[in-house]
Design a protein around this nucleic acid. Sequence first.
DNA 1: TGGTTAAAGCAAAGATCATTGCGTTTCGAC
DNA 2: GTCGAAACGCAATGATCTTTGCTTTAACCA
Lengths: 171, 171
Amino acid sequence: MLTAIYTSVGELVGEGADKISFPIIAERAGVNPTTLYRRWDDVNALLEEVAVAALTGDGESVPDTGTLEQDLTEWANIIAHDITRPERARYLRAMVSARVEIVSSCPVTEKRREQASEMVRRARERGETTPTVQQILDHIIAPLYYNVVFALQVDHEYARRLVRDVLAMVR
Amino acid sequence: MLTAIYTSVGELVGEGADKISFPIIAERAGVNPTTLYRRWDDVNALLEEVAVAALTGDGESVPDTGTLEQDLTEWANIIAHDITRPERARYLRAMVSARVEIVSSCPVTEKRREQASEMVRRARERGETTPTVQQILDHIIAPLYYNVVFALQVDHEYARRLVRDVLAMVR
DNA sequence: TGGTTAAAGCAAAGATCATTGCGTTTCGAC
DNA sequence: GTCGAAACGCAATGATCTTTGCTTTAACCA
């Protein structure tokens, strides 16, 4: 039931459907539109729910290579590779347009913060000088997402440059 | 005519209207909905047009204080102050959701790039060591916009920290 | 002034969405 | 098994959107 709905939304988003409405989602999911109208306030609410699930879902394990630079580079590459996939990019856009009011946190950011914290913690235990977690979010995550959301290109070279920049701050 | 439509859209966005449709825009603008249906493909196309005009419109003069650090700080503050205004944030969201397909450039980014270029050029003429324009975009603009779009808070302290971070890269 | 063309208004029709009341199913508790 | 609550399906209704053909206005140019 719920998974059918999520799948339906996922397919529509993946296909780049221009119009995504409750009736359309319901038909593909094999449920009655009324169900959707009753459970979610509007399409954006459902869309955001699915987007968050999709964007935070797969429990990517954080790289652990022995140096923070290598960890961050691989991590940035994974993220860059992930969020440039068309359906991921669409989810991001959907999430952005969905949250109409200012809220205090964003699930996606929080996940990245946790991942960054882990890498930084390990690096510090090794005695490395590290940027702060916030610096990593500001100068690696933010540019990556910014460029995806505003429709510019993101590649491995770009991800690598971001890592070098942020590490240059603390040298 | 066109300005009435733009004004109508601007008001609706500013008021945080949940539903923005051609008929609603048309009524407030005192025009016939048919006109809008004929001129724009859909609401998002019109919305993006107005958003771009609003976000790149006012010809903010770039700070020229004598040092790049001060220039960047004031500039970042201006931007932070501007894009955290609810209607500006809304425009940003509208723009994001409007551009469904990957395009090569974003009008807002381009304007910021020009502004950053000017400040960097002046700083270099004074003999300052500067970050690249791209670094400024990546590490000041991107975090600011990212935080607005993903509904976190942006204040002057944050803007200042970004400037310090990016300058630390080149020291 | 008169003619031509592009844009806007008007009205009607159909499509899609959104809401609501009511009957049915499901599932757990007793 | 039976009861009750919650969720879902169904169908009808009204609202809103979207399209289309035709008319009218406006602007531009000979």
